[in-house]
Design a protein around this nucleic acid. Structure first.
Length: 479
DNA sequence: ATAGATTTAAT
DNA sequence: TTAAATCTA
């Protein structure tokens, strides 16, 4: 009789409730990770996430081996693979942390239904500070707006103190078969685009702890520095958190112990909680506008070659707006983009290029090492103005003044080498100052023209939520 | 007691 | 515009 521990986005040994509970049973433990590209359907992990996963699984396996255990790797639809494995090893229980993506909720339900008699599925909390859905409004409903959600959640803080990893993990007499991780093809082959990611990141629990140690002395300056992309003002913990290499409770307590004014940082942790709560209420938030009026928004048609070309220029960082291009190139090189720049780049795709937010969301899903269904969907809908939490569509970010305001000169110099020789203020808008080098593109569209086009488009859905056909015809004629 | 109206505030 | 809390009949 063995106990299975099913790992997913919780690739850690510290403060891992499922692992602790399994060890406490006093029986042999079989840790397993299942690569499942079928259950999430069109939400299977993107290329950058797969790169991260490969290294994080190796780190987890190493950590387990140091405690006398190891990680079993299997591939396929998770609920079927687990039911099969439970039969194979005669498992009396499967312990896991509860996940809240709609496909994982379905899979956990499906697993209950097909488990062999005598195998129990035991789910624990641990992905969030509070279980999504558990923070209720005064009348017992679910929050839709961040600020009241934060106030209500803060009442329950601090979370329970994190628990250390078990010293030893008892092994079964014989291990079941395991895939070789390199047979999964998680790493890029040719071309190897992961060089910048290798330089920048150390996936796994040890890397997560290092990032936290690096951040803590800076935590009380987070509020002041977090919007400056050219300096390390943020924590860089997002991919580690997405893969669960560090628990939110560990981070909360460490930030509180660091002292100083850390509330702004803690609020950002709670944005992650908020996003999980939103997708629990609206499971299709990643594909469906929360405000139905946006279903009629006259997005430019991706089947049109011009629109496709604009999109490709955005992905490659060739829009002619230095701050946007720096961000998109940072994303391509490192699998990460500074949060302030994410807002500017996303706003540019939606409002300057009039491309459906879902197109941008998909690109981020594929290229971000911290790609997270809940956070990605909530943040893109927020930027579009289509979300339950309303950022007015008509608030159109001006990329050039954002660039100056957040002092992005050095950031642009780093990521857009064609412009590295330019000083401030020229580097923020070389075209306007007449110093654009020949190897840097002209702007796809001017800010003023883009702004007017976006407002015209928005006016069509503003009134009744239905399509204003006359206005649509007018826009098409103008194009 | 509670549905409905009013107020407040929203990265 | 809309969510959430508060007030009111």
């Amino acid at each position: 009789m063995t106990t299975i521990v099913w790992f997913r986005r919780d690739l850690r040994l510290e403060d891992q409730a499922a692992l602790l509970a399994a060890v406490r049973r006093g029986r042999p433990v079989t840790p397993v990770y299942i690569l499942d590209d079928e259950t999430p359907m069109h939400r299977k992990m993107g290329a950058a996430s797969r790169w991260w996963l490969r290294h994080s699984l190796k780190a987890l396996d190493d950590a387990l081996r140091a405690r006398g255990s190891r990680l079993i790797l299997r591939r396929g639809p998770a609920h079927q693979v687990l039911a099969q494995l439970a039969r194979e090893v005669g498992a009396s229980a499967i312990h896991c942390l509860r996940h809240y993506e709609p496909w994982w909720r379905n899979a956990e339900r499906a697993l209950q239904d097909i488990l062999p008699v005598g195998t129990a599925l035991i789910r624990h909390e641990g992905l969030y500070l509070m279980p999504p859905g558990s923070v209720k409004t005064g009348s017992g409903g679910q929050f839709k707006i961040y600020t009241p959600f934060w106030r209500a959640l803060a009442q329950h803080m601090p979370p329970a103190a994190p628990r250390p990893a078990p010293d030893t993990i008892p092994s079964p007499e014989a291990w079941p078969e395991s895939d070789e991780i390199d047979s999964w093809g998680l790493l890029p082959s040719t071309p190897d685009w992961a060089g910048g990611m290798r330089d920048f990141w150390m996936p796994g629990e040890t890397g997560a702890a290092k990032r936290l140690d690096d951040f803590l002395p800076r935590a009380n300056r987070y509020q002041e520095k977090r919007n400056l992309p050219s300096i390390p003002g943020t924590s860089f913990l997002s991919p580690h958190m997405h893969f669960g290499e560090i628990s939110p409770s560990t981070i909360w307590h460490a930030a509180m112990d660091a002292g100083g004014s850390v509330e702004t940082y803690l609020k950002e942790l709670v944005w992650r909680e908020y996003a999980a709560n939103v997708i629990l209420q609206f499971p299709d938030y990643g594909v469906r506008n929360a405000r139905a009026a946006f279903d009629h928004f006259p997005w430019r048609d991706m089947a049109n070659a011009d629109v496709q070309q604009d999109y490709v220029r955005w992905t490659k960082g060739l829009t002619g707006y230095p701050i946007v291009d720096a961000g998109m190139r940072e994303l391509w090189a490192t699998g990460w983009m500074h949060n302030r720049v994410r807002m500017i780049a996303a706003s540019f795709l939606i409002k300057h290029l009039l491309i459906d937010w879902r197109v941008g969301e998909q690109w981020f899903w594929d290229t971000l090492v911290d790609a997270d269904y809940a956070s990605n969907a909530v943040n893109w809908q927020w930027t579009a103005g289509s979300g339950v939490d309303s950022n007015m569509f008509v608030r159109i970010m001006a990329p050039l003044s954002q660039s100056e305001k957040f002092d992005a000169g050095d950031y642009i110099r780093r990521w857009v080498p064609e412009l590295a020789h330019l000083s401030d203020p020229y580097i923020h808008d070389p075209e306007e100052y007449g110093v654009r080098p020949a190897n840097y593109p002209t702007k796809i569209i001017g800010h003023r023209a883009a702004r007017e086009r976006a407002l015209t488009a928005y006016a069509m859905i503003k009134e009744s939520g239905s399509v204003d056909n006359e206005a649509v015809a007018g826009l098409e004629a103008a194009e």
